[in-house]
């Protein structure tokens, strides 16, 4: 029953988010602020992780290809498929659930416990729209982060595979181009958009409806990370089943 109540509350929150809109000029500034905090602020860790994950995937694949009949270009093929289909959109989203999700929950949760949300409501401002809508719009730029992640993941794989002496540069480029299915990229970006919405709204729900004090803000952030990850994984499974099988 508690879960059903929470799911219902989440959708009612979404209704409120898309309800009465905040003044456009104020909203515009909030969206730019959120893009800076949620997206630009995450680029460093995303770039770092993507490069090294790509590199490790290439090394692992290369080390497991002992059969001389299997072409070395397969290292690039495997790295490309892994990075585009799963590592960039899903793995990075899990990382973002920790970084961006915790930030969203704690910032909204702190506002809740210090009566800042009450202050907005008393002024006649739709607090759900004011606080959550700009985050959703800012997260629409999240696919750019994933595109950068894909590029750096493959670059990391190239550097590790070529500098490590596992594959020749020409073989790597050839492997990258082998059996390329454009729809895989479309699938990756479709799920990235869904993940972006989840990353903005699930942590926001945990922050908006939290009760208590500073300790509970911390607990809400942890709970938000767990539930955002769960929802991401289930959505990933459902969308993969729908689009690829």
């Amino acid at each position: 029953m508690t879960y059903l109540h929470s799911i219902g509350e989440y959708f009612l929150m979404l209704k409120g988010v898309f309800g009465r809109m905040t003044k456009r000029s104020v909203l515009r500034n909030l969206i730019f602020k959120e893009i800076n905090e949620l997206i630009i602020g995450s680029l460093g860790i995303v770039c770092f992780l993507s490069f090294f994950i790509g590199a490790v995937v290439a090394i692992q694949t290369a080390l497991n290809l002992n059969n001389p009949l299997i072409p070395k270009s397969l290292v690039a093929f495997a790295a490309r498929q892994s990075v585009i289909l799963e590592f960039a959109p899903t793995f990075i989203s899990i990382i973002m659930a920790g970084k961006v999700g915790s930030f969203i929950t704690s910032s909204i949760g702190s506002m809740q416990v210090t009566e800042q949300i009450d202050a907005l409501e008393v002024m006649g401002i739709n607090s759900k729209n004011y606080l959550i809508f700009p985050k959703i719009i800012a997260m629409l730029t999240y696919p750019f982060v994933i595109a950068i992640s894909m590029f750096l993941g493959i670059l990391g794989a190239y550097v590790a595979a070529v500098l490590g002496g596992f594959v020749k540069p020409d073989d790597f480029v050839s492997g990258l181009q082998d059996d390329f299915v454009t729809f895989h990229l479309i699938y990756a970006f479709i799920k990235t958009f869904l993940f972006a919405f989840i990353l903005a709204t699930v942590p926001a729900y945990h922050g908006y409806y939290m009760k208590g004090g500073a300790l509970e803000v911390g607990q809400a952030s942890t709970t938000a990370f767990v539930w955002t990850s769960v929802v991401l994984i289930i959505t990933n499974y459902a969308i993969t089943q729908l689009l690829l099988s």
């Binding site: 910032s107 702190s110 506002m111 210090t114 009566e115 800042q116 009450d118 202050a119 008393v122 002024m123 006649g124």
Partner: peptide, 21 residues
Amino acid sequence: ERRELRKEIGMVFQGGALFDS
């Protein structure tokens, strides 16, 4: 009318409720 009324209300909260950002 309720929205208009709220614009005519000022509220001082116990903890101040200032926007900390």
